[in-house]
Amino acid sequence: MPELSQQPPDVYTLLAALADRIDGKYRNAAMDEPLALAQALVVAERAPGSTDAAERALTDALPPVRTGDTRADYAARVRLLAEGVTA
């Protein structure tokens, strides 16, 4: 059985880490799709035990960026997904 640190991260853990990363700096700066994807890939790559499947799961789970979204707005929606909230 693999060690816990070798287990791939689940998408909810990755979403929570992404929300923290996005919300951590420049909260009032504009958010766009390329930035969301770039930040998601950084989070997925740095996660212990990350795999290509984990990266794909995270990028597939990203909500769309809405016109006028700030980083804080987008992070709030990502955080809701991390908590399992669905519309």
Score class of each variant (00 low, 15 high):
A82M: 06
A76D: 14
N28G: 13
L62C: 13
A19L: 09
P64Q: 14
D10S: 04
P2F: 04
A76S: 15
A29Q: 13
Y26C: 03
M1F: 11
P48W: 07
S50I: 00
R27P: 08
P8D: 05
P64W: 07
A54R: 00
G68K: 00
E45R: 14
R71A: 07
Q39L: 07
V85D: 03
A57I: 05
E3K: 14
Q39A: 07
R66A: 07
A47W: 00
A30D: 11
A54W: 01
A38V: 03
A61C: 10
R56T: 12
P34H: 10
T13A: 14
L37D: 11
Q7W: 12
N28F: 09
Y74V: 08
R77T: 14
L37N: 09
P48V: 09
I22E: 04
V65F: 06
I22G: 01
V65E: 00
L4I: 12
R66Y: 05
V65C: 03
D73A: 14
T59N: 03
L14Y: 04
A30N: 09
T86N: 10
A29V: 03
Q7P: 03
A40L: 02
R21T: 04
N28A: 15
P2R: 03
G49I: 14
L4K: 13
S50R: 00
D23R: 06
A72P: 05
D69W: 08
Q6R: 10
D73R: 06
A19N: 05
A44T: 03
D20V: 05
P34E: 15
L4D: 02
D23M: 04
D20I: 03
E33M: 09
A72R: 10
D23N: 11
A17S: 15
L80D: 07
R27Y: 07
A47R: 03
G84P: 06
N28E: 15
L37Q: 13
T70C: 08
A72W: 04
V11Q: 03
P9N: 08
A53F: 13
E33Y: 11
P2W: 02
A54M: 01
R66Q: 09
D69G: 06
A53P: 04
D60L: 08
A40N: 00
Q7H: 13
E3I: 01
L14T: 01
T67I: 08
L4T: 08
D23E: 13
V78C: 06
V65K: 02
